[in-house]
Design a protein around this nucleic acid. Structure first.
Length: 815
RNA sequence: GGGCUCGUAGUCCAAUGGCCAAGACGUCAGCUUUACACGCUGAGGAUCGGAGUUCGAUUCUCCGCGGGCCCACCA
């Protein structure tokens, strides 16, 4: 029985022997570079991470067998909201900046230790000496350098721009950090007076709004130009209630005539639509809300928070007689995904990278990458076409890479540091340049904001290849050979990496990009820790084994689809590992004291030995092709099918009689069988070792003192003529027969299968002696079958056998 | 509303412009074959609907239906 306890032993052994270290000095082997995701250090490993860790590790191990010098580092994405939020959850928000910062660092360090041990337990063979951590000075230096490079190339600018702002986190946030939730609210119908016609009933215009508290920032009323109710009012002036301010009535085709009253108040800024109106109609800007979500420029309402102001102002509007009605409604509110606070749009001075003008370049870069699956590429292309704003990289937070710039408050000139000064921290450091180089002002300020986390992680292909210090390694290790990542971060990690690496180097970041989907629970729903619908990888390992989980990952289907988890499939994976282990025991017992012939064992080969060797040779080619296209599913299934249903079900059964009693078989027949058993088992183990390294190593240790990872991947050879046979990648010519061993083996196995079927139909045990077997074969196969009749008789346990020529294959059994 | 993507047995998951559409789990029947009952032999079971292209479509195109993801709108 395969004992999962041995798995931890092999993990320890591989680490002690440094078997998977990247060999820096070796320049003869080609480098294979793996850009694996640096996980957010927010907690223990989940199923999605288990999936990609074992997937990419299998590829790393395969490439080593193929003779590559595999550069496989593992990094940790430690900074930004995710960690800050975990720390807030644990310790609360109220503490000095320095203390909070330190707690973030400690939390990240703690989590790295946990996650690393979980990954290593899975058998991940990354080289620990190559680890990178985004909060380290060295990594930050590289991030800052990458920004300086982009600044030099004109990608960086600082500007006032409406940004999506979280009043609770007091920071601008990125679009991908926004969620939508449905909330109850009131749709308030409010009357605006029309200038010069005060008093008369028809001298009002009515709007509907969910945001009455923004009334003070109202800069226009907008109606649809095709709306007959309002067409004559366009260009006139309306008076806001409460504030009594004059605003123009403008027309815009974007206004929905059916919604509310068909008239809208435009505020700066209530929503995105207001922004486009603001630019389109060149409306004035009123800053309505401050950074912490309280009203400003709102007269007596200034200083109230949004909800407070909302009810206060409604009361005021009502008492003034301008409130027509309130309708309860549900509407979608954009909230910050980390804290669920509704976001606001604020005009704020921020740092930007020019993604919008770069979209064609980004697309070109994405197209030069080999996407697996192909269809994942479309996500990035669509996104690139959709960009509205440049990438806002500033975050008004604490735990992040400082934006490495100072600026002149007088003229806005950006003052970058010198490269050799990096890393810098403008949030606290004084500028080296005391006087603005452009206007001579001495009002030089350091940027207080830090970088968005994707700024850190979007240069991993450079960092892992030794950029910028090790130019020699860069030559060999960049672009990365492969990246693996989830489909959920194509728009972020893949997109920003393609953008930044393209901008900095002009090259693609990686040759191949594997995009995996989600692991769902058994019901096909997303796993959520909070809902208790998750399955912990640790519990699966404990219940099955590491390699069972790994085999499930590899064999669970194509990579482009969400995949429901299945205990049934886990059981199957477990069964295969048992099968493999048990068959190895058989081979071991079969060998006994037999010494393997060193040379020319095939002199004593029988037809089934030739057949299985040739089949192995075919499988080597199939499996290699599958691995080379990163298709672990195909590799796994080819290997399982061959091993289980050809090698075990037929080859082993067919040679048992030769093993059991070698006095009744030709000389050296047993030796040839034992040699073949061992050979095929060994090659299959080597081919499986990337996927189930622990089991392969454990089984291999029954036969060899050397690690299985010291092997090379088996060689495939092409047969030149049909009677050739191949052993270990070497082609041999058969001088005696002129038939194809693959066909012959298949035919003989079919005959054996027919005999089994006949016995099964008669409800007889398969090892029951048959009195007689009659085989009728077409003339073309007669020689093959006739010359193998003695073997067939032994394998099928028949007292007599007869082979006759006929039209089609017929097998009858007399019991 | 727009885009992308998918639809194969009870379930999961492959492949393919043409041989009988692969495999697994489950089901059913049989077999304790001295590696393995986590096994072996066998049985039954599927291309969402419609139209088109084609000698031929499950595969390509279009429409519809259904799922998933994304985006927009929601004053």
């Amino acid at each position: 029985m395969y004992d999962p306890k041995s798995e931890e032993r092999w993990n320890a052994y591989w680490r002690e022997t440094n078997l998977f270290r990247f060999d820096r000095e070796n320049t003869s082997k080609p480098v294979f570079t793996i850009d694996s995701p640096p996980p957010n250090t927010t907690g223990g490993m989940h199923m999605g991470q288990t999936f990609w860790v074992s997937y990419i590790d299998s590829i790393a191990r395969y490439k080593r067998l193929k003779g590559f010098n595999v550069l496989y580092p593992q990094g940790w994405d430690t900074q930004g909201f995710p960690v800050e939020l975990e720390v807030e959850k644990r310790y609360g928000k109220n503490m000095p900046r320095e203390e909070f910062y330190k707690r973030c660092v400690d939390y990240a360090k703690e989590t790295i230790i946990l996650m690393k041990s979980q990954m290593l337990r899975m058998g991940a063979s990354f080289d620990e000496s190559l680890e990178y951590v985004t909060m380290s000075d060295d990594y930050r230096r590289k991030v800052q350098l990458s920004l300086l490079e982009m600044y030099d190339k004109g990608y960086v600018y600082r500007a006032s721009h409406p940004v999506e702002w979280c009043p609770s986190c007091k920071s601008s946030i990125a679009r991908e950090e926004i969620n939508e939730t449905e909330k109850d609210t009131y749709f308030n119908y409010i009357r605006f007076g029309l200038k010069g016609r005060k008093g008369a009933k028809e001298h009002y215009i009515e709007i509907a709004t969910t945001r009455p508290e923004l009334l003070h920032a109202c800069v226009a009323l907008a109606v649809n130009p095709d709306d007959p109710r309002y067409s004559k009012e366009i260009g006139k002036t309306a008076i806001t209630p409460v504030y009594g301010k004059e605003v123009q009535i403008i027309s815009d085709p974007g206004i929905d005539k059916e919604l509310g009253t068909g008239a809208e108040m435009v505020c700066t800024f209530g929503d995105k639509n207001d922004i486009s109106m603001h630019y389109r109609h060149k409306l004035p800007l009123i800053e309505a809300i401050d950074e912490s979500g309280t009203l400003k420029n709102a007269g007596k309402f200034s200083g109230m928070d949004i909800l407070e102001a909302r009810s206060a102002i409604i009361k005021e509007i009502e008492s003034e007689g301008s409130l027509v009605k309130r309708e309860q409604m549900k509407h979608n509110v954009k909230v910050h995904d980390r804290c669920s606070t509704p976001i606001e749009l604020l005009s704020y001075t921020q740092w930007f990278l020019k993604t919008k003008d770069s979209s064609e370049k980004i697309k070109g870069n994405a197209l030069s990458i080999n996407w697996i699956p192909e269809s994942a590429k479309q996500r990035l292309l669509d996104w690139a076409d959709f960009i509205e704003w440049d990438w806002n990289i500033s975050r008004n937070r604490i735990f992040g890479t400082p934006i490495p710039f100072w600026y002149c408050e007088a003229c806005g000139e950006i003052l970058p540091p010198k490269r050799e000064e990096l890393p810098v921290n403008p949030t606290v450091d004084d500028p080296k340049e005391k006087v603005c180089r452009k206007c001579g002002s001495t009002k030089i300020k350091g940027e207080k904001d830090v970088c968005d986390v994707w700024v850190d992680s979007s240069i991993t292909p450079l960092v892992i290849a030794g950029w910028p210090d090790n130019k020699e390694l860069m030559q060999r290790a960049f672009p990365s050979s492969v990246r693996i990542q989830g489909t959920d971060i194509v728009r972020t990690w893949a997109f920003y990496t393609a953008f930044r690496i393209g901008a900095i180097t002009g090259e693609k970041p990686f040759e191949n990009l594997i995009v995996h989907n989600m692991i769902l629970n058994e019901e096909g729903k997303e796993m959520h820790k909070s809902l208790g619908t998750g399955i912990s990888p640790e519990s699966l390992i404990d219940r099955y084994s590491i390699d069972t989980v790994r085999l499930w990952v590899a064999g669970s289907g194509g990579i482009g689809k969400d995949k429901p988890f299945s205990y049934g499939e886990m059981e199957y994976a477990k069964s295969f590992i048992s099968k493999l282990y048990n068959s190895a025991i058989f081979v071991k017992n079969a060998m006994g004291e037999t010494r393997l012939p060193k040379e020319e064992p095939h002199k004593s080969f029988g037809v089934f030995d030739f057949w299985i060797m040739n089949r192995l040779n075919d499988v080597v080619a199939d499996v290699e092709k599958a691995y080379d296209s990163f298709n672990l599913y195909e590799a796994t299934n080819k290997l399982i099918d061959f091993f289980w249903h050809e090698f075990c079900d037929y080859y082993i059964e067919n040679v048992k009689y030769r093993i059991r009693d070698d006095t009744k078989v030709p000389a050296n027949s047993k030796k040839a069988a034992v040699y073949t058993l061992h050979h095929v088992l060994n090659k299959v183990l080597v081919m499986l070792s990337p996927i189930i390294p622990h089991a392969a190593e454990e089984i291999n240790s029954m036969f060899s003192k050397e690690s299985i990872f010291m092997n090379s991947f088996p060689e495939h050879a092409e047969r030149e003529s049909k009677a050739d046979y191949i052993i270990n990648g070497l082609v041999f010519k058969s001088a005696i027969v002129d038939f194809d061993y693959n066909d012959a083996g298949a035919l003989l196995n079919r005959i054996i299968g027919e005999v089994r079927k006949e016995k099964s139909k008669s409800r007889a045990a398969l090892n029951k002696e048959a009195k007689r077997i009659n085989i009728n074969v077409p003339e073309a196969y007669y020689t093959v079958v006739f010359s193998s009749r003695q073997e067939l008789q032994n394998i099928c346990k028949a007292s007599e056998i007869s082979v006759t020529k006929g039209d089609e294959l017929q097998v009858s059994v007399e019991l």
